[in-house]
Write a protein that binds this DNA or RNA. Structure first.
Length: 196
DNA sequence: AGCGTGATCTTT
DNA sequence: AAGATCACGCTG
């Protein structure tokens, strides 16, 4: 299916979190190896007013990409060992991003298995840091976008509303009351989540 | 259930 | 300059 252009990403963050479900994330490595995954779980993060967001206190060196144009990538490093990948939303100078939390591996599975040593098929990208590891994404990609060679998003039919679940975001201490996690109900590739 | 591991941000 | 926190994954 066709590649999604900038206008696709230019919708409110919460809507984008839903619209991304089912779409195919495409990563092309140096050497033209192609990796693909189907997005099955996302979370929305805003700026001011969303205390769980990196951007709620304003722009810093790290979160700068969150203030860039829709379709930019925001990647950061946390817990001393994990990279997490977000797709930026909202117009320039307004913070917003959608965290990619889980994907169904579609193509390049052999490579992903190499990247993730102890993983069975359904575990390859069933968590936000696993995605970054499987697809070989790190901080150097923060600020890139989905409109070049390395990264893109392929269209796919929308997921029917009845198959989309909603919950609190996972692993945060503030903003728990907001139901800003979206996922494809019944997918075997969802993240395991963290209690409370 | 516990902990690693380091960047980032806030407070002194 | 020091301390707290952290959008997590793995082992036990």
């Amino acid at each position: 299916m066709e590649r999604l252009e900038k206008q696709f990403f230019d919708i409110p963050t919460l809507q984008l979190a839903t619209a991304l479900l089912g779409k195919t994330f495409v990563r092309i490595l140096p050497g033209n190896r192609v990796l693909k995954g189907r997005i099955v779980e996302t979370e929305a993060y805003l700026g001011e007013g969303d205390e769980a967001s990196h951007a709620w206190r304003g722009k810093t060196d790290r979160n700068r990409p969150m203030f860039e144009a829709p379709g930019t990538l925001y990647v950061y490093f946390t817990y001393g060992c994990h990279h997490l990948v977000n797709i930026v939303s909202e117009p320039r100078e307004t913070a917003g991003a959608v965290l990619l939390r889980a994907m169904e591996p579609l193509e390049g599975i052999w490579f992903m298995e190499q990247q993730r040593r102890s993983a069975s098929a359904s575990n390859l990208m069933s968590g936000p840091a696993k995605i970054a590891q499987a697809l070989d994404i790190n901080r150097s990609h923060s600020g890139s976008d989905l409109f070049g060679v390395e990264f893109s998003l392929e269209n796919a039919p929308p997921i029917p509303e009845t198959h989309i679940g909603t919950s609190s975001r996972i692993g945060i201490s503030r903003g728990k009351e907001l139901q800003w996690r979206k996922f494809v109900i019944g997918s075997p590739h969802l993240s395991q989540g963290r209690p409370s």
